[in-house]
């Protein structure tokens, strides 16, 4: 790495920092209960819940910090927080 003049930085480069290691609990997805409302994806502070083409979601465990907002806000209890086994 060479210092850029004035410290100008390229966009989206925090992806180098995998925050998944912060996690104590991880979301467990009960796809059968999911109504594909997209709320979990919208709310995730770490942009780690991704809606697929079929509107079901997948979790990006490279970055998910395990906050549990997705589980807490899911209207159908389709996400459950379980202890992360490391």
């Amino acid at each position: 790495m060479k210092i850029t003049i004035g410290g100008v930085v390229e966009p989206g480069t925090t992806r180098a920092n995998k925050t998944g290691g912060w996690r104590n609990f991880k979301p467990l997805y009960h796809k059968d209960k999911c109504i594909k409302c997209g709320l979990c994806s919208m709310l995730c502070p770490d942009s780690s819940v991704h809606e697929q083409e079929d509107k079901y979601v997948i979790f990006d465990f490279d970055f998910c910090k395990g906050c549990g907002i997705c589980a807490n806000e899911c209207p159908k209890d389709a996400i459950e927080m379980v202890l992360e086994e490391k």
Binding site: G6, G7, V8, V9, E10, P11
Partner: peptide, 8 residues
């Protein structure tokens, strides 16, 4: 898009 004023 570039980021100006990052912290070091």
């Amino acid at each position: 898009p570039k980021t100006f004023g990052a912290f070091a």
